[in-house]
Design a protein around this nucleic acid. Structure first.
Lengths: 187, 187
DNA sequence: GTCTATATCTCGATAGAC
DNA sequence: GTCTATCGAGATATAGAC
């Protein structure tokens, strides 16, 4: 890998962490500078502005999301098993969700009121999950498969939101068990 | 009412609307100036800083929340009816929720990552609902009444969040019907 | 009680040396 | 490819006239 490419990845990695843990607006160029150990000038050499960094982050996340779908499909035989893996992925993030909420939900929520362009940029992540979950429910025979997908998304967003608001990981575990149970019953 | 008190209320009212519709950080003194038609100096005469305005808003909202509990209790005879009124209150906010999310949830979410002092200031609103919902479930005979309260809070926060993210009021109506149905079955 | 004017700070972005 | 230096906008907050 070229040095430039390496630096770019380093900036994206650190910025993603900052944006998640402190929010996009609250993460300044100075913060990114400190987190990466690079100068401001060097960062803007690789990304012309903050928005460009966010675009890079979303592109990276989207490919990770698609990769996880692929991995889940290769590992399983039934939609029910795949939905269980989706839940497992969320359960694994317990600590981070308690501290910072859902990485996708909190980012989108930050933009939805005031930043239509950035909101449009992050929404595809939500839509990717919506579509994939929809496929699973479709395969399970649900006529209203999209509604089921949305409902599940709402369910887990609510769990993440309240877990974060109350910093309550007991609630998180309890509620994710309920969600998994509900999925089993639908399969 | 004295003129000073009137001005104070006017500032709180307009600021609450601004903070809800655009977020706290995104609402500047200049915005409050424009929304109220008052000068910057006059606003800081009544509230020494932005935080003091938020404190006034939360105090106002808290008394409204307590007032709604009282009204619901006077209007009903059973906890199930009271929980239905709680849902009704949310359903009535459909348009605002689609556009701006939950007034309490989005405000708390904005502070939970970066502003511990403001987060501490807004959390009591959540706790008021948690406690009151808990009372209803307790009266219904649930041993784990607090868990039921939290679960319901998570449910509606998820609905509000996803409704706002996807700007989808059909999802909102559908899902709130489900929530109401679940409550009926518990009663 | 209400106003104008201003001080000070932080941010994103840019220019140019090496 | 990486750095330092600086600009200009917009934010909160304050001082003082009326």
């Amino acid at each position: 890998m070229k040095q430039g490419e390496k630096t770019k990845r380093h900036i994206l990695e650190q910025s993603d962490k900052l944006f998640y843990e402190h929010g996009y607006a609250h993460s300044s160029f100075t913060d990114i500078m400190n987190a990466t150990g690079l100068s401001k000038g060097n960062i803007t050499y690789h990304f012309k502005n903050k928005r460009a960094i966010l675009e890079g982050i979303v592109a990276q996340r989207m490919s990770e999301i698609e990769a996880s779908f692929k991995a889940w499909e290769e590992k399983t035989h039934t939609p029910t098993e795949r939905l269980a893996l989706f839940c497992e992925m969320i359960v694994e993030q317990q600590g981070a969700i308690e501290s910072f909420g859902c990485p996708m939900g909190t980012l989108t929520a930050e933009f939805s009121k005031n930043e239509p362009e950035l909101y449009t940029l992050t929404l595809p992540m939500f839509n990717a999950y919506r579509a994939w979950l929809g496929e699973q429910f479709k395969e399970l025979g649900f006529k209203a498969y999209d509604e089921e997908a949305m409902s599940l998304l709402g369910r887990v967003q609510g769990v993440a939101m309240v877990t974060h608001a109350f910093k309550d990981s007991d609630f998180f575990r309890r509620e994710m068990e309920r969600v998994k149970e509900e999925i089993k019953q639908k399969g």
